[in-house]
Amino acid sequence: MRRSNAIGVGAAAASSLLLLFLVLPVVRLVAAAGPQGAARLWSDAELRQSLALTALTATAATLLAALGGAPLAWLLARRAFRGRALVAAVLDLPLLIPHPVAGIALLLLLGRGSAIGSSLLSLGLRIVGTPLGIIAAMLFVSAPLFVSGAREAFARVDVRLEGVARTLGDSPWRAFRRVTLPLAARGLIASGVVTWARAVSEFGAIVILAYNPKVVSVLAYDRFTGFGLSEALPVAAALVVLSLIPLTALRALRMGDERAVA
């Protein structure tokens, strides 16, 4: 009994240290610059534009991730096909490589010197240094998170529920729409929220592909290198607050889930 208590106390102490390490810098940052950041929202037009740009591009990247990611997640959850393990491994790739490297890779693929980049340019679509570049960078680093979460959401829906719907006269698509989708909806929304949060916080890939126009993470870096810590702090605090919005939404969603299960 005494031994298990000691293990519990040791685990709690180690956990507390890690949690403090994770929370303290963010709390310190918001405490130091939160009010100043809020005030800057009125006076700093560049920060306002940057926040709007970040939110819009992250939303676009999330929608694209959902559009392509949901069918892929469904395939991975429901169909056994040759190369499924390879597809899953490929999806992990963007999460494993350093994000500036991801930016360089995207630059090679979509830059004006590349076949795709020049083709897009001929269509009037410039990727590098535009919101499209930001969306591409955000999509690259965050889409795997959506696929992974959505795959789990689909896998959690028992396939026999779909089977019963089929025997009750539903076509595969109708069973998906009436049973699978509503039951996976919370998981899909949660995956979307995580994807959006990841897109908002991206810096490494964006800074290579589209330094301008500046998303908030790039603006914070720009202010830090150009004007020092005091100018970077309010921007950084604003980015933290922006990131907290989806986290709060996700928490509320999970609490709703727990209430539904209880």
Partner: peptide
């Protein structure tokens, strides 16, 4: 296809639609 067979299937666990 399963939806064309006109079969009523009842599983032991029911598998009611929870939503």
């Amino acid at each position: 296809a399963a939806d064309a067979r006109g079969i009523g299937l009842v599983y032991q666990l029911g598998f009611l639609f929870p939503h």
